[in-house]
Amino acid sequence: VKNSPDAYGMVSGSEGYEYEMFFSSNPNDMIKIDGWIPIDTSRIEKADKINEYIEIGLLRRIGSSLS
């Protein structure tokens, strides 16, 4: 399934993940969901740009949120 957690390299739970990736619903979706999903670092295609992705808000380190 295209949008399954397995597509992002996830396993059960978010243990062992260093980063979360921001996702946003498509404009035509009936239900709008924006949020964060843990992502396996090996699934980040351009790992050398991780700091840039953090600066623009696409990635964040797990545990760095103020919630």
Score class of each variant (00 low, 15 high):
Ile56Cys: 10
Ile56Leu: 13
Tyr19Ala: 03
Ile39Leu: 10
Ile39Thr: 05
Asp34Met: 12
Ser12Ala: 04
Tyr8Leu: 15
Glu15Ser: 03
Ser12Val: 03
Asn28Gln: 12
Tyr17His: 09
Gly57Phe: 04
Thr41Cys: 09
Asp29Gln: 12
Ile56Phe: 09
Tyr17Arg: 10
Trp36Gly: 11
Glu15Gln: 08
Arg60Gly: 01
Ile33Leu: 11
Ile62Asp: 03
Glu45Trp: 05
Thr41Ala: 07
Glu18Met: 07
Pro38Ala: 15
Asp34Trp: 09
Ile56Tyr: 15
Ala47Asp: 08
Gly13Glu: 02
Ile56Val: 12
Lys46Ser: 08
Phe22Glu: 12
Ile54Ala: 02
Ser24Glu: 14
Pro27Asn: 02
Tyr8Asn: 08
Pro27Met: 07
Ala47Gly: 05
Ile62Phe: 02
Asp34Ala: 14
Phe23Ala: 05
Ile33Asp: 13
Met30Phe: 11
Leu59Gln: 01
Leu58Pro: 01
Asp34His: 13
Ser25Ala: 11
Gly35Val: 09
Asp29His: 13
Asn28Ile: 11
Glu45Val: 14
Ile44Trp: 01
Tyr8Ile: 12
Ser14Thr: 12
Lys49Phe: 02
Met30Tyr: 14
Ser42Tyr: 08
Ile62Tyr: 00
Gly9Asn: 03
Lys46Val: 00
Val11His: 10
Glu52Cys: 08
Asp48Val: 04
Ile37Asp: 06
Pro38Asn: 12
Met10Ile: 02
Glu55Tyr: 02
Arg61Glu: 02
Tyr8Glu: 07
Lys49Asn: 04
Met10Lys: 14
Asp40Thr: 03
Ala47Trp: 03
Tyr17Leu: 09
Ser25Gly: 07
Met30Ile: 14
Arg43Phe: 15
Ser64Pro: 01
Gly35Leu: 05
Arg43His: 15
Glu20Leu: 03
Gly57Glu: 00
Lys46Gly: 05
Glu52Ser: 12
Gly63Glu: 01
Ser25Arg: 00
Glu55Thr: 03
Asn51Tyr: 01
Ile56Met: 14
Ser64Gly: 00
Glu45Gly: 00
Ile37Trp: 02
Asp48Pro: 00
Gly9Gln: 02
Ile54Glu: 04
Tyr19Gly: 05
Lys49Met: 15
Asp34Tyr: 10
Asn26Asp: 15
Ile50Phe: 01
Ala47Val: 04
Ile37Asn: 08
Ile39Pro: 07
Ile54Asp: 02
Gly13Leu: 02
Lys32Ile: 13
Glu45Ile: 07
Asp40Trp: 08
Arg60Thr: 02
Arg43Met: 14
Arg43Gly: 00
Met21Tyr: 12
Ser14Pro: 00
Ile39Asn: 06
Lys49Thr: 03
Met10Thr: 06
Ala47Pro: 02
Met21Arg: 13
Gly63Gln: 07
Ser42Val: 09
Asp48Gln: 15
Tyr19Lys: 08
Ile33Arg: 15
Ile33Trp: 12
Ser42Ile: 04
Thr41Arg: 15
Asp48Ser: 06
Trp36Asn: 08
Glu52Ile: 06
Tyr17Cys: 04
Arg61Ile: 05
Leu59Glu: 01
Lys49Glu: 12
Glu18Val: 10
Glu55His: 04
Tyr53Thr: 01
Gly57Tyr: 05
